[in-house]
Design a binder for these strands. Structure first.
Lengths: 205, 205, 205, 205
DNA sequence: TATGAATGAGGGTTCATTCAT
DNA sequence: TATGAATGAACCCTCATTCAT
């Protein structure tokens, strides 16, 4: 029983830490609170993480791992056309990430990038680059097949990802204040609608 | 001259504070550093701001004031069609805000919204609501004139603003690490290109 | 074998503790390290010693026991004159104590006397007093027989013991830094040479 | 008034720290206590010393400076014979050092040498080497003039210094427990008596 | 008997805030 | 008005001690 607990501890601690880091930021998060939220004493944290900074790194690195595989797998398995694929990817990302606690990581990363350049670098290389790769692949397929216009692919990737990012970020920032906020589904549908229309090749006329 | 200095002090202090708050976040910013950057001693800060939190509020409130007027003025003065107006607005926003230090405020606000709900509320009501109003106005004009499709206006507003926000945010977060980043102009042009195409009424065929 | 181990444990633990206490001092020594050096887990320490302080006391008390008997035995068995006896005692002390780990105890005791007055008291009464007794006996014999001058015996005892103590102390303090240090044998020989000459009765002229 | 205080602070803090470091050792000394003894709050310590270790180094380095000059000056100014000079030096050292708080530094250095090898090195080179130089000079003078026997000078230096060191050490270690202790003057006189007799050239017969 | 995960009081250090100058 | 020395509450981290296994 003790053994089972020991193995689960790091994940429990990282989950608690993620919540608080996202909510308050790194500097404003007290390890006391992290420990309390995970139901352990302060000292226990140090059995699993060398210090606050290492905990932070672990939270980021562990948090993004599950997301990476799924996205790339989706790309290889899907065999519809580029329009449908792009639509599915944007929708599923929200289901897989946006509705979980992991959605807080982008906000956290944005907030703390300046204080942890190496972690930001790591995040960029392991998440952003791969995420952008997924979108790039779809855009290139669509352009190659004539479905999409020949837009500037690299710029378009960022433009496409921006509303997805903002949706996740919003939830953990201004979304928590009393700001009349929309339904994520409507937001996503509108994003995809505008995007697909925007990408549509002129020949459709 | 002393008098002149005295009147300039608050602005100098807020400018210094804005830079550091944006770079490091509220909690990780030391008042010592703010004072040093403004070229005064730590105690002087307290002659102008009751405490760190009041300084933060002042930074936000002063920072957004200049932006507000300009945008709304643009709307009333412009008499081209909706397409052109939307394009001009998105481009000019970057010129007026994106290239100055004020562009850091969105990032700062996102990072600290959870710790300062009242400030977030204030920011939402005085910046977001008004900014959204500008976009809404343009969209409604375009839809009314038949230039734009009848999209979900409220959702579209957020989708349209997202890439603009991300452009500003990026500069103060991951943009400072070694991430192969694009040119803002290309990014904006692509955003506007996709957007206008996406909004374009089907009847153009 | 398990039984044998169990009986050897306290001694092993005390040996490990002595080394570390001498090297780092009581407060700076971690029980983790003591346990690791003895090849057991931290908890095991508490099966044999109630707490860190008791371990310290045991280390001192056990450490000095073997030294006590030997010295006094030497005194009774030796039947040469006072000069030879004094010489033998000082040399043998170094052989029996100075070259073993026990030589660290004087340094440890000096360092921690202020923090453990009762232990210091115990050490004084059981080691210093008896050690001084040995020297006193020799001096008195020598003075009675006319070999030695009639020096102030109590003061002379301390003066005689000082170089012996310093030789042991040095090994565990400054001796471990890069300080050009002499050979203990030469040091001892010079000490004894000076001492015997210094004690020599004037009549020898 | 504030200014005057500011300049006196470091010395006050080091004096307080020296007392406690000598009494309890480095690790067992709380900065709270140091501050309290100096009559300031804990934070004030950090206005003058970067951390506990730097405070320690400052205590050692500042503590020994005054002693160095005096000893060497004495040597050059004295013009009696070697016997008298040696006697005066040993006596005066006690007056200048032994009766002040500085006498605790040898004990402190011995206790902490293992934990601060660089400080130990510094102490050896700046105190021990110079102190030994003083004694060496006197011995060589005495041997050259025929007053002293041709003893092993380097070994003799350490033998001669040992009782002096022990006198100082004792005061801050076992001397504080209930150990029947002698009068320093008698101790010193006996030391010098034995020593000068021990060094005396045989030819005087 | 032995382990090592867990605890929590305690100490070093930081920094927002105050106030005498 | 401006300074910067001083304060002390708060936080990170350590480590002696406990206890379930």
């Amino acid at each position: 029983m003790r053994q089972r607990r020991k193995e689960a501890r790091p994940a429990e601690l990282m989950a608690a830490a993620l919540d608080l880091f996202v909510e308050r930021g790194f500097a404003a998060t007290k390890l006391d609170d992290v420990a309390a939220r995970a139901g352990v004493s302060k000292g226990t944290l140090y059995l699993y993480f060398a210090n606050k900074e290492e905990l932070f790194k672990a939270v980021i690195q562990q948090g993004i791992l599950p997301v990476l595989a799924q996205g790339e797998e989706m790309l290889t398995q899907f065999d519809g056309d580029a329009r449908a694929l792009l639509q599915v990817m944007l929708m599923r990302w929200w289901e897989l990430v946006g509705t979980t606690h992991l959605a807080g990581i982008p906000k956290l990363m944005i907030s703390e990038a300046g204080n942890f350049p190496e972690v930001a670098q790591y995040y960029y290389e392991n998440v952003m680059v791969r995420g952008r790769g997924l979108i790039r692949e779809v855009l290139q397929r669509g352009i190659a097949s004539g479905q999409f216009r020949a837009v500037d692919v690299e710029a378009a990737i960022d433009v496409i990802l921006a509303p997805q990012m903002m949706l996740a970020i919003w939830r953990y920032s201004l979304g928590s204040c009393d700001c009349g906020k929309q339904d994520p589904q409507t937001y996503l549908r509108t994003h995809i609608d505008l995007l697909l229309n925007g990408l549509m090749a002129a020949e459709k006329k």
